[in-house]
Amino acid sequence: MLKINDLHANVDDKEILKGINLEVKAGEVHAIMGPNGSGKSTLASVIAGNENFEVTQGSIELSGEDLEDVSPEERAHKGVFLSFQYPVEIPGVSVTNFMKTAINESRKAKGLEDMPAKDMLKLIREKSELLEIDRKFLSRSLNEGFSGGEKKRNEIFQMAMLEPKVAILDETDSGLDIDALRIVASGVNKLKSKDNAVILITHYQRLLEYIVPDYVHVLHNGKIVKSGGKELALELEEKGYDWLKQETAV
């Protein structure tokens, strides 16, 4: 579904990603772990098409299509979703209005009519229940005055609404208390299917107790230095990242 080949990317002429290779198939959950500054969030931004990052080498393919000249919004239409580490505020634009716009823009790109209000309401009701979101929350301005946990839950609500093929969750667990983490994780688990894929970017093993990955990759200094099954996360939790740094330095 998502295939990344020898991906190199710069920000302000500084190379951050130095040759990433990753293949994510439909139905899989991949976890990407690694110390601060290893390039995890950069990888997420580059997949989503953020042009603050310059791809200097390599490619990203979605269902066989090269994404090189595909704009961020077109990537979204094709099913790429990024749950932001720091979701931005948009004052005066309600969560509902924002989602309505996003869904209808995607439909427009596919040559479909706007979603009828009745269907939209049904969808909103269904997905907000899934994430135990109070309906009042949906009329508030997007992320304005939201707590850290509310912001993250709102990201996953949007994911539920947009039903992406590939969802990248960039540190969705940070800032969540244990109850919120459980709700968010159970939401993600319910949204998971054999037709979509999830990439979890996280520092901690904690999230992976709730959303169990098929593969764990360790990113260090812009490269994937180790891949393995879910047990790799436990090993990292126990030993930290230093042993890997030493191992790769050799």
Binding site: P72, A76, F81, F84, P87, I90, G92, A102, L162
Partner: peptide, 22 residues
């Protein structure tokens, strides 16, 4: 970029933000 990532192009994103502001 946040709007772009949700499938909303830049023109529409500006309109959305400005309408929210107003």
């Amino acid at each position: 970029f946040y709007c772009n990532q949700r499938g909303i192009d830049t023109e529409k994103a500006i309109a959305l933000i400005v309408n929210g502001f107003s």
